[in-house]
Simulated scan of single mutants.
Amino acid sequence: MITDIDVPQRIEELEMLLAGLFDAAKRPTVSSVDEEERRYFQLSWVTASSADTSLDSRCALTVCFTRDQIDAYSHMPTNARDAFRARLGHDLIGRFNTTHAEKVDCSDCSVEYQVRDALLTKRA
């Protein structure tokens, strides 16, 4: 059974995955918001830096989990969580690269991603 302390640790595991996904000129920022039935993670990173930080080019990736998906992830054994994070990371990079390549305006560097249940059950 998952205790109250385990869920924040699982959330931190997902945040750490996101923070390491993309090469960044500066340290990426990861935040998460719990909205009862959904949990959103947002990753923001600098793709090109300048002396004036207000001119930095940034990208953002928003990842949405349902409450059931977070619960399922939290209950997985360590090896299953590791495998899920590997699948999720691969999927996120692919989605970002595909979506970003299709955009006409290259300055629009934001992608939203809804986690699929199949990723949690190894069917992806």
Results as ranks from 00 to 15, higher is better:
113 Y>V: 05
79 N>S: 14
4 D>T: 14
114 Q>N: 11
47 T>S: 14
42 Q>F: 10
87 R>Q: 09
94 G>R: 05
55 L>P: 02
16 M>L: 12
50 S>E: 14
79 N>T: 06
1 M>G: 15
100 H>I: 09
38 R>S: 12
38 R>A: 13
108 D>T: 09
117 D>F: 10
10 R>P: 07
45 W>A: 03
44 S>H: 01
70 I>V: 12
110 S>R: 15
116 R>Y: 14
111 V>N: 02
87 R>S: 10
112 E>W: 14
76 M>N: 10
101 A>L: 14
30 V>S: 01
17 L>E: 02
98 T>E: 11
9 Q>E: 12
47 T>W: 03
121 T>F: 09
19 A>D: 02
32 S>H: 10
41 F>Y: 11
51 A>E: 08
78 T>E: 04
29 T>P: 01
122 K>Y: 08
79 N>E: 13
26 K>Q: 05
112 E>G: 10
65 F>W: 11
69 Q>H: 11
95 R>Q: 07
91 D>F: 02
63 V>Q: 06
96 F>Q: 10
25 A>R: 06
18 L>C: 00
104 V>W: 13
86 A>M: 02
118 A>D: 05
64 C>L: 11
1 M>T: 10
40 Y>I: 05
23 D>G: 05
100 H>C: 03
51 A>S: 04
83 A>M: 08
72 A>T: 13
76 M>E: 12
45 W>S: 02
121 T>K: 15
15 E>T: 07
105 D>E: 13
5 I>S: 09
65 F>Y: 14
87 R>G: 02
18 L>M: 08
14 L>K: 01
15 E>N: 06
69 Q>A: 09
